[in-house]
Design a protein around this nucleic acid. Structure first.
Length: 424
RNA sequence: GGAGAGAUGGGUGAGUGGCUGAAACCACCGGUUUGCUAAACCGACGUACGGGUCAUUCUGUACCGGGGGUUCGAAUCCCCCUCUCUCCGCCA
C-alpha cells in the first residue's frame, strides 16, 4: 500500500499518477487527507491526557510510599475524568485509524514514468521480439492432442483423481517437467539467486503480507479447518521470509529463487482459454524474487528481464516482451514486463512470465525495510519478482512448435536434464 | 489425539504491581590501545505514531505473542485466543 505520509504530502501527484492506471483517486485521497488530519488532532489530545495521567499515577506512587494515604486518595479522584476522556479519545482514534487504512488499501501502486498510457492489452508496448515463428507441418495439432497422442499428459485422469485443471503427467511428460524445473533452478543459481524450498501452505499473516488477502481472497484454496492457504505462487512464502525484517544495506540486493507447485482456484475462468495447459488449478513454476535498494531497483528489474529472456531463448522459443500499459497492470505493480511465447498450433501468444517492480508497495505492508547508511533510520525496501518460468505454457509451446512427423523434438539445452531427445 | 511448559529488545535471558522502555551477557556499530590480527577497555545501541526547531537536536504517547479486564498505576494479577517447545501415542 502507499505510504500515508506520502499521500498526505503529495495528494496531487498521487491523483495524477493513478490516472495512468485509469483510477480516479481524487475522492479517496481527499478523504484520507481529511481523516488523517482529524486523526492527528485526536492523537494529540489523547497523548496529552495520557501524559497527565502518567504524571498523577507517579505522584500517587510516591505519596503511597511516604504513607500519605489521604493525599493519595485525593489525587485518585482527579483521574476518573481523565480516564473517561482517554477511553473516548482512544476509541475515536481507533475508528478513524481503521477508516484511513480502509481508504489507504484502496489505492493501487503508482505506475512508473516508463509505463505507457492505455486501457487494454492492445495498448501494451512491445519492447522486444525474438526468434522466428515456426512454420508447422500440414497436419499439426495443438498440445492437448499431442499430449494424448504420445500419452504424456492425461487430463481426464486428473479429472477422476481431483478435478479439471489438475493434469497427470506421465512418462516423458513427467520427466520433461522435472527437467524444466531443474534447468530453471540451475540457471537462477548461476545468476546469483539463493535456492529456497518454501512451504506450500501459508498462514493468514503471510497471505496479507503479499496482498493476496484481502484483495484476491477467492483465488486461493483455503484449508478452513487450519486456516491455511495453498500458495498461488512461491512469491508468497519467499517474500514473507522478510516480513517484519530490517535488512542490512550490505545484504542488498537479496536474490532468492524457488520452485513450487502453485494452486489457483481461477474462479470465473471459462472457455477456450482454459483448454489443455493454458490455465490450470495446479501448475509448476520457478520464481525469482529480489529485495533491493530503491536506488537501483530498476536496474535489477532489467537484469531480471534479461534473465528470463535468456531462459526462453535457450529453449529456442520465439517470444516477445511487453511493457504493460497503465490499464493492464496489476494493482500492486509500478512497472511490469510480460513475456509471451508463440504457440504455433494454437496460433497465439501465451503469457509465460510476468516480471515486476513493486517499489515499496509490498514492502509497506510487509514492513520490510533496510537501514539507511547515513541516517541510520529504517527505510522501506523495494521488492521485485518474476516467473522464471511457469511450466505449463512453456511446455505447450515446446510441444506444438517442435512437433515433427517423427515425434516432438526436445530442445538441446534440456536433453542432459531429461535424458532423451525425442518424445515419440 | 493426551499431558505439561512457555512466548520479554538482533540473539541468550533476568524481571510477580510504581524506582522497568525494560538488568546482565552476546552480536552489531563508533572509539582507545596495537607492527598486523586477536584480546582488553570505553561509548553508543529498539520500533511506530504525534508535536516543536523541521539540518544536528529536543519532546509526548504507545509497544514485553494478540485481544479484553482489574487498578490511580500492569511485562508483572484475571479471562479469552494464537503460536512454539517437551514428553507420550500414532506415523512418512
Amino acid at each position: 500500500m502507499l505510504n500515508l505520509k506520502f499521500i498526505q504530502e503529495n495528494p496531487e501527484l498521487v491523483i495524477a499518477k493513478l490516472k495512468k492506471k485509469n483510477f480516479d483517486a481524487s475522492s479517496i485521497v481527499q478523504q484520507i487527507k481529511q481523516l488523517s488530519g482529524k486523526k492527528n488532532e485526536i492523537q494529540n489530545k489523547a497523548d496529552q491526557c495520557k501524559a497527565e495521567m502518567n504524571k498523577i499515577s507517579k505522584e500517587i506512587g510516591l505519596l503511597m510510599r511516604e504513607g500519605k494515604t489521604t493525599e493519595a486518595e485525593t489525587a485518585k479522584t482527579r483521574t476518573a475524568e481523565l480516564k473517561d476522556s482517554i477511553k473516548q479519545l482512544d476509541d475515536d482514534f481507533a475508528r478513524i485509524d481503521q477508516e484511513v487504512f480502509n481508504f489507504q488499501v484502496l489505492l493501487p501502486n503508482l505506475p512508473s514514468d516508463l509505463v505507457p498510457e492505455g486501457r487494454t492489452p492492445e495498448d501494451n508496448m512491445i519492447v522486444k521480439s525474438h526468434g522466428t515463428i515456426p512454420v508447422l507441418p500440414e497436419n499439426s495439432i495443438p498440445h492437448w492432442e499431442l499430449a494424448k497422442k504420445y500419452d504424456i499428459i492425461d487430463f481426464e485422469l486428473g479429472v477422476k483423481i481431483t478435478g479439471a485443471g489438475f493434469p497427470v503427467y506421465k512418462g516423458k511428460g513427467a520427466r520433461i517437467q522435472r527437467a524444466l524445473i531443474n534447468f530453471f533452478l540451475d540457471e537462477a543459481r548461476a545468476s546469483g539467486y539463493l535456492e529456497i524450498q518454501p512451504p506450500l501452505m501459508v498462514n493468514e499473516d503471510s497471505a496479507f503480507g503479499t496482498g493476496q488477502l484481502p484483495d484476491k481472497e477467492g483465488q486461493m484454496y483455503h484449508a478452513t479447518e487450519d486456516n491455511l492457504y495453498m500458495i498461488p505462487t512461491s512469491e508468497v512464502p519467499v517474500t514473507n521470509i522478510y516480513r517484519d525484517v530490517i535488512v542490512e544495506v550490505k545484504e542488498l540486493p537479496v536474490k532468492n529463487t524457488a520452485y513450487s507447485a502453485c494452486f489457483r482456484r481461477e474462479a470465473g475462468s471459462y472457455g477456450k482459454d482454459v483448454r489443455g495447459l493454458n490455465r490450470l488449478h495446479q501448475f509448476d513454476k520457478v520464481e525469482i524474487v529480489q529485495i533491493a535498494h530503491p536506488d537501483n531497483s530498476y536496474e535489477l528489474l532489467d537484469e531480471m528481464v534479461a534473465h528470463v529472456a535468456s531462459l526462453i531463448a535457450k529453449l529456442e522459443l520465439p517470444y516477445r516482451v511487453l511493457r504493460l500499459c497503465g490499464g493492464d497492470m496489476s494493482f500492486t505493480s509500478a512497472l511490469t514486463y510480460d513475456f509471451e511465447v508463440f504457440s504455433a498450433a494454437q496460433e497465439k501468444w501465451l503469457e509465460v512470465s510476468s516480471v515486476s517492480n513493486f517499489e515499496s508497495f509490498q514492502a509497506s505492508r510487509l514492513k520490510l525495510r533496510y537501514r539507511d547508511e547515513t541516517t541510520k533510520k529504517p527505510v522501506l525496501a523495494h521488492t521485485l519478482n518474476g516467473s522464471a518460468l511457469a511450466l505449463p505454457r512453456i511446455l505447450a509451446a515446446l510441444l506444438e512448435n517442435n512437433q515433427t512427423p517423427e515425434g516432438i523434438r526436445v530442445p538441446k539445452v534440456l536433453v542432459p536434464y531429461c535424458g532423451f531427445e525425442m518424445i515419440d
